[in-house]
Design a protein around this nucleic acid. Structure first.
Lengths: 143, 143
DNA sequence: TATAAAATCTATAGAATTACTAGACTTTTA
DNA sequence: TAAAAGTCTAGTAATTCTATAGATTTTATA
């Protein structure tokens, strides 16, 4: 299951992507919109900034804004950042690989094979789903 | 990611499915095979028994044994028992459904839609994968 | 140039979940 | 009747997740 942190991050990104304003959006506004503890959200937005998804402007009139085209922000990337591996097992994780201590040969492990299939199926969707897709769907449906 | 408990449960089931013995298998033997804390494994096997996957024989010469055909034990079932929901969000979980507090209409939620796609893809695999498949794969490969 | 508004930084506390342990009890077999 | 096995109740330890506190820095503007 996605952690609260992950959901908060996605909500914030969605909000920023939908904001058609030219001025940056302040943390408090996003926090209030989704009932996110403000201090918690601060650290999330900072992480997103350091990862290159957001830019910020300090001081009065400041706030956060997207620096990337929402279509270029893959959901797989966001999930990995905040939720850790997409895979069910470390031994099939592309980004967080670890071998299993008890496993002699991964190629012979039935559980490994199963986890591989699940990972491939999930990844196929998550790599092709962007923040832009999420937003576009919501704006389409609300008509 | 699968919890240790889940992996322990799967290992134990796999071991029992592979055991061609006519006598029950004792906890200690399984625990040693996979370096699982014995007391922890005891509670896991008890859960599996209460869920109808295992039978047990008490007293000297006792132990645990499978009561179902491995082909009839769906991995989706085991994962849900020990690892909780397969879905990424409670609002798309078939067995652990909960609505999101912040969500006005699930049908309009882009994240909901994404989670639904991932769940369907994962479930398609996990419902069609049985303990028997896991074991068969391992016995095939080891030739 | 003082003030207010905003992000940034460091540190820590609290809550929840996961993993594991201890020990007494019951049942069965030889 | 003794040893070997599962069963039951309770609790502890470790880890991860969530949240908070407070000081600092930067910037706009009155």
């Amino acid at each position: 299951m996605l952690s609260k942190k992950t959901k908060y991050a996605i909500h914030a990104l969605t909000y920023l992507a939908k904001s058609s304003r030219q001025t940056p959006v302040i943390i408090r506004e996003i926090a209030q919109e989704y009932c996110i503890p403000q201090k918690f959200l601060e650290s999330i937005l900072l992480e997103l900034k350091k990862a290159g998804f957001l830019g910020s402007k300090i001081g009065k009139g400041g706030g956060y804004y997207l620096t990337k085209d929402p279509k270029k922000i893959k959901m797989a990337h966001i999930l990995r950042m905040f939720n850790g591996p997409i895979a069910l097992l470390p031994c099939v994780s592309l980004n967080y690989y670890e071998s299993c201590a008890e496993c002699v040969d991964e190629k012979q492990c039935g559980l490994h094979k199963m986890a591989l299939e699940v990972r491939d199926a999930a990844l196929k969707i998550l790599l092709n789903k962007s923040l832009g897709d999420i937003v576009a769907f919501e704006e389409l449906e609300s008509c």
